[in-house]
């Protein structure tokens, strides 16, 4: 677990650089990556079985963290969120899915595809929930619509 936390944090830091984040925000992105995986581990170890709900919780907490950082430093929340959430991104299961398809192993492909969908949906739902709350708050503050 500790190795995963360190490795996940290092990965998030690396992705912060790959995503062109300004150097002064790189430690925050790494902290976000640490938080993301720590919350996921708490969820999957102590609360739920299966990957979906821990992913939703972790994505929501990371999104909240990014929104708060975005407000403090006046930067887009996605700049922090995108590298921070990378430990949850189903890169490995997406690869195994495609690997199984190329190898003509359709049973494994089906299983891995479902895992990939669970992670992807979990991240999307978690981040959308927090995004929606902040969007409603912004609309109330502005009393207007983005389409006006």
């Amino acid at each position: 677990m500790i190795i995963q936390l360190i490795a996940g944090t290092t990965g998030a830091l690396g992705f912060g650089m790959l995503f062109g984040l300004r150097p002064k925000y790189l430690p925050i992105a790494a902290l976000g990556g640490f938080l993301c995986w720590a919350v996921y581990l708490v969820g999957i170890t102590f609360i739920w079985e299966g990957v979906f709900w821990p992913t939703v919780l972790s994505a929501a907490v990371t999104s909240l963290f990014s929104e708060i950082i975005g407000k403090i430093y006046h930067i887009p929340a996605s700049a922090i969120y995108t590298p921070a959430v990378v430990p949850l991104v189903p890169g490995a299961s997406l690869y195994y899915t495609m690997n199984a398809i190329v190898a003509n192993d359709w049973i494994k492909a089906q299983y891995m595809a479902v895992e990939t969908v669970k992670y992807t949906l979990g991240i999307a739902i978690g981040m959308s929930a927090v995004y929606t709350i902040f969007a409603i708050k912004k609309r109330i503050q502005l009393k207007g619509s983005r389409y006006e």
Binding site: A7, T10, G11, G14, M17, P87
Partner: peptide, 18 residues
């Protein structure tokens, strides 16, 4: 150099992570 460093850290980190 930061892009290269990022690739090194991300690839190394996630190989251990998985």
């Amino acid at each position: 150099k930061l892009i290269y460093l990022g690739s090194v850290l991300a690839a190394g980190g996630f190989a251990v992570f998985f």
